[in-house]
């Protein structure tokens, strides 16, 4: 049984802020593990948060205009 971590809104915000500041994923992984997360749970947290953020950004992108003759 793999231990789990609880992903709070604060942790999500921290992950996004760090990623936007240019921190590489392995640095965030190490930071979460150092804070007591298991590596599996930290990887879940990073993947879920960043995947949702990318989808969120994609949602805001304007739809491509149809080609004009």
């Amino acid at each position: 049984m793999k231990p789990t971590g609880r992903l709070t809104p604060d942790t999500r915000r921290w992950i996004i802020a760090q990623a936007e500041a240019g921190q590489p994923a392995d640095a965030l992984l190490k930071a979460l593990v150092a804070a007591g997360w298991t590596e599996d749970a930290a990887l879940d947290a990073l993947e879920s948060t960043l995947r949702l953020k990318v989808a969120e950004i994609g949602s805001r992108a304007p739809a491509p205009k149809p080609a004009q003759p």
Binding site: R6, L7, E47
Partner: peptide, 8 residues
């Protein structure tokens, strides 16, 4: 609160 949720 499991870190994988919301799952996309």
């Amino acid at each position: 609160g499991l870190a994988c949720f919301p799952l996309l």
